[in-house]
Design a protein around this nucleic acid. Structure first.
Lengths: 354, 354
DNA sequence: CAAGCTGTAGCAAGCGCTTTCTACATGAGG
DNA sequence: CCTCATGTAGAAAGCGCTTGCTACAGCTTG
């Protein structure tokens, strides 16, 4: 039924071993023999049996990329960059690797499930992207799993994710704290004193770090923080829309809104607009990430640019062992403040609600 | 070093066969034995060797999802929906499947490479999304590959992609022609007579179908088509920006621009704005797909909504054999015209360029 | 001219699992 | 009490490939 190595060998009048060596190209084979084998492969339309070869060689060419939300360009861009350094014909000769992205949907359980599945497949490497969940039963479980993977020879790289101690995992972390700090500093510099903050889900590291940066800026400027000034939500547009309405309800006099990311910021802009408020004349809005659509927004979004593609590419190379890991296994990747149209000096003093 | 089935068997004082049966749950095992085995698995932290089991059972739990551009939400949304019906703990008990998305980057070679890689892994199913390339050496090669896959028992589903004849592949096709027709009809109905069209890459089916729908609408309205009214580009924002400048150069008097998709439309809006033209007062703009950001654009985009998530979910279920394929193996999925702020009646008659 | 290389190819032993077939208790039926 | 289903477990034969080791030409060398 299906063609096997032995069939090819028979056709080429050589032993299976020789065929295997031709295909893997890691052993001297006479040119004439090689050609005969290749012709047989072609004529029989032979396709290597991946599982069999993985079993025999005790290695696999699978590389897993875990993302929180594949429909979010933030992850799409990173995944794309990682993959481009790993899979397909772009890479080194002979080394076809199957780079696969797994969508955890932000669920800790699914993250663990995928990790187990990849461990099962004896993946060559695993790249985890995006913020981690800090909640306890899970964080430890993931760390343990990562350790196991590393022990089994799987290279583990974290991209845009905080380091996982005792794990051997290489981490390229985004400096969310610093970026957030710069962003809020910018707003404060413009004269804003009443700022609202729309945060992401509470249990994520990214959320916490960005919030910490924001608060650091506030306290450095001597602005006492209003506990009502922060609303938590998801990392999507909708969440930004709703949170903005809530912030406006709590404090109609705020002059700036800092969002957890660009999507949230766009939602905020929409809510503001529908509330009859202009951006940035009435309320300034700032995002985070600088996704492609952010320049295009009207007004264009002030945000912190994260080098998603660069970091992803680097993570991919490290995962493939084609680039040295950073010293200590940890590197912090800085964002860059992009000042654009959505932020400006606060208008006068009081605005009447409604 | 690594724990194997045999180790677990030894620990549980049973034969490897029994452990295998407990793990697969497809053979009666006494409750007490099962429990003993499970405990041993737990204590030893045993993880099944995927390749070995795939080899022995001649099946694998891999499901491949091919996308053209993972950084594009169009694909992200579909991939997410497909995956949610396939992978992780969402599915049927016991059946953990590894749903993986492969990014072809729109390159025919990579598409083929991934297909081969999946064939190698003896994937349980493959879902191909997005338009196909029509160029000849490639189209035939892909069809041949799909046939091979199907023969080898891999279920093949096309989602948002035209049917592949002689292939056994199930196809859920988007009615791009019909959607494009409705969209341009709408514009014509508003009174537009000079329309520019920004198309995608020439060799893609999606591009051709949308263009055909557009032209059908024009000719039905008795508008003779200006060969200069169409510019080809990529499916991204940038392309829309550049193409718009080009269209404006060719015909400064056009009153509407139809874009290949929403991203392109956004780029068009940006170019228009920078050229001092208002949307829709001076020029109407229409997109296609209705991605999440389209409602948020200013003005919000008139477009054709494609039920990406629904179609993806359905494709996923079909791929898993959990839903009957449509009769004849082919279903056409219709889009819905969403009339929003970016289109309006054309202004007066002549506008002066510059 | 015998001994020793070098370059190629084959043998055969697994890799870790699944699954068919066989074996053996048990308890039921005659 | 013997025979037979019935339920449960084990033995063992692969699945298709890789790879360490062996074999043996054809050439150098001393």
């Amino acid at each position: 039924m299906t063609v096997t190595l032995a069939d090819v060998a028979a056709r080429a009048q050589v032993s299976p071993a020789t065929v295997s060596r031709v295909l893997n190209g890691n052993y001297p084979v006479a040119a004439s023999t090689r050609e005969r084998v290749l012709r047989a492969v072609d004529e029989l339309d032979y396709v290597l049996n991946g599982p069999a070869s993985a079993l025999a060689a005790a290695t696999s060419d699978l590389v897993g990329i875990l993302v929180n939300d594949i429909a979010d360009p933030f992850f799409g861009i990173m995944a794309s960059a990682i993959q481009s350094e790993i899979g397909g014909p772009g890479g080194r000769a002979g080394g076809e690797r199957l780079a696969v992205v797994c969508n955890t949907g932000g669920s800790p359980e699914r993250e663990l499930t995928y990790l187990t599945l990849l461990q099962r497949q004896r993946a060559a490497a695993v790249v985890l992207t995006g913020g981690a969940v800090e909640e306890e039963p899970h964080a430890t479980a993931v760390a343990a799993k990562l350790r196991k993977l590393a022990e089994a020879g799987t290279r583990v790289v974290l991209c845009g994710r905080p380091p996982a101690p005792d794990t051997q995992a290489i981490a390229l972390t985004f400096d969310n704290r610093g970026g957030a700090r710069a962003l809020t500093d910018h707003l404060i510099g413009l004269g804003h004193r009443r700022l609202g903050y729309i945060a992401g889900p509470e249990e994520r590291t990214t959320t916490r770090h960005r919030l910490e940066g924001h608060r650091a800026a506030l306290s450095a400027a001597g602005i006492e923080e209003d506990p009502h000034g922060t609303v938590h939500g998801r990392y999507d547009r909708r969440s930004g829309y709703e949170a903005t309405l809530e912030l406006l309800r709590r404090d109609p006099s705020l002059t700036a809104i800092v969002a957890a990311n660009d999507s949230v910021a766009l939602g905020a802009c929409a809510a503001l607009r529908e509330s009859g408020l202009r951006v940035p004349e009435d309320v300034s809005v700032a995002g985070f990430d600088d996704l492609p659509f952010s320049v295009d927004a009207v007004p264009s979004l002030t945000t912190v640019r994260l080098p998603l593609a660069e970091a992803g590419a680097r993570a991919g190379r490290i995962a493939m062992g084609r680039e040295e890991p950073p010293p200590g296994g940890i590197a912090s990747v800085r964002g860059e403040l992009m000042v654009r149209g959505s932020t400006g000096v606060p208008r006068g003093s009081v605005r009447v609600g409604e």
